[in-house]
Amino acid sequence: MSKMPDKKKNILTCCFLVLGVALILTGIFQDQAKMVLVKAARICMECVGIG
């Protein structure tokens, strides 16, 4: 893997970037960004140690 030429590494990077964007868009269409907000906009009792 470490011997992989830069060109191949860049192709792999692009594939993962496209995959990332595709997953983000899929999540947004399923309202998952809103679900993240709902969780993040309240104090997470477990996180802060209240339980």
């Binding site: 990077t13 993962f16 970037l17 995959l19 990332g20 964007v21 595709a22 997953l23 983000i24 868009l25 899929t26 999540g27 947004i28 399923q30 998952q32 960004a33 679900m35 993240v36 969780k39 993040a40 997470c44 996180c47």
Partner: peptide, 27 residues
């Protein structure tokens, strides 16, 4: 935290959005 919130939900939903962000930032 967001990833665990999806995975530990009462109704399972694959966390496309969070995994997508992690893969994008990672790449």
């Amino acid at each position: 935290g967001s990833l665990q919130s999806f995975l530990s939900g009462l109704k399972f939903r694959f966390p496309y959005y969070v995994v997508g962000i992690l893969i994008f930032v990672g790449a």
